[in-house]
């Protein structure tokens, strides 16, 4: 009996047809493709995208972000001592986004929440100089870019103007 059923299984290929049933099942299921340039996914709130710096908030003398960065891609120039008493904002602030790992450790270490990730992730450029951010280009544009995740919860994160106001959009 055993032998007969084995023989029948051998010549009728039941397991192959089962496999074909599986692929047929997926044939009729919803497709998972995202039509990327036309249809963009909503990124989760915590996405670590391109870095932005709120120059007005930065106290520049701490330079934690510069020290902690494993790739050494941040360079902060604090103002001279006399000036620093009144205006702590950096004279110049460079981020080499080309080398950035988007690891988030600079954001982690900043005590004022000046440096933060945005949700800009399309970092493909023709000239890599476009990825070198300085004092002019680093501050986010409140209308275009959204203020994003900050590690320090006690620092108020401005999401008022953001179209993605509801937190944790992805879930």
């Amino acid at each position: 009996m055993e032998a007969i059923s084995k023989f029948i299984r051998m010549i009728t290929f039941p397991e192959l047809f089962k496999g074909m049933a599986v692929t047929a099942k997926y044939f009729f299921q919803r497709k998972v493709t995202e039509q990327y340039p036309d249809q963009k996914t909503i990124l989760p709130y915590r996405t670590k995208g391109k870095l932005h710096v709120d120059i007005d908030k930065c106290i520049s003398l701490c330079r934690f972000c510069e020290k902690v960065c494993p790739e050494g891609c941040i360079k902060v120039f604090p103002p001279p001592k006399e000036l620093a008493k009144t205006d702590k904002r950096p004279v110049e602030f460079y981020i080499n986004q080309e080398h950035c790992l988007h690891c988030g450790m600079c954001v982690d270490s900043c005590s004022t929440g000046a440096i933060h990730h945005s949700d800009e992730y399309e970092l493909v450029v023709i000239d890599f100089k476009e990825l070198l951010g300085d004092k002019e280009t680093l501050p986010y544009d409140m209308i275009k870019k959204h203020y994003r995740w900050n590690y320090l919860e006690n620092v108020p994160v401005k999401i008022k103007d953001s179209p993605l106001k509801e937190e944790e959009k992805s879930q």
Partner: peptide
Amino acid sequence: LLGFYQSRL
């Protein structure tokens, strides 16, 4: 068709 079998377009 292969795409459809493979859950893509």
